[in-house]
Amino acid sequence: MSALLFNFLAVFIVACAAGVVLNRNAVASALCLLLSLVGVAGLFVQLDAFLLAALLVFVYAGAVVALFLFIIMLLDMQGGDRKPFTGLTLAAGTLAFLLLAGGVFSFAAHARLPATPAPAQAAGASLQNYAELLFTTYLLPVEVVGFLLLIAMLGVIVLSKKFEPELEPGAGSQKPDVRSQMSDAGNRKPEGSQEIPNHP
């Protein structure tokens, strides 16, 4: 039963991953990625990592793929008339893929890992084990990851903010003038920076 489920999920995941790579349309690629992630979450369940399966579905399928779809809709790329890949890059990529896959299969054929049976009681099944490790051994990485999320949030805000010189009210003091000049100089582009905000 578990072998059947594993085989089904493996074929499903690999087919969906191939769909991500080969699809002409970016929206279809994102949906294939979503299906592939759901399959990986199923494998996590089979490996008794229930918390990670739920987190994978929430974080990846819920947030990341939704963000991808949102950006695809926002950018509104016209991808229909353009080929997704050219012959030369396809040949080079296939060669690299075959090299990597050949390495994998020689590894699988010659250097087999000892096929020890999985222990009956999975350590990853209980939430208590996660809490114990996260709050003792990995306490510092948890703090660092918290700061990383904060910095990423600030970075995204800075990246997506438009620095417009008109926003500074000329209140007569010296400082806003200097700042508006600096941001004006930083924003100056060779071809009309005025058109870009008006572009739909």
């Binding site: 493996a10 995941i13 690999v14 991953a17 191939a18 991500v20 790579v21 970016a26 690629s29 592939s36 494998l43 490996l47 991808f68 950006i71 695809i72 950018l75 790329m77 991808g79 353009r82 080929k83 997704p84 890949f85 050219t86 890059t89 396809l90 080079a92 990529g93 296939t94 690299a96 893929f97 990597l100 896959a101 994998v104 299969f105 590894f107 699988a108 890992l113």
Partner: peptide, 24 residues
């Protein structure tokens, strides 16, 4: 599991190499 994950990694690698769209 290791072979499956390596095949999945190789497929992602192939996609990074051949695709032209930054989002993909």
């Amino acid at each position: 599991y290791i072979v499956l994950s390596a095949v999945l990694f190789a497929l992602g690698f192939l996609g990074v190499l051949v695709r032209k769209n930054t989002l993909v």
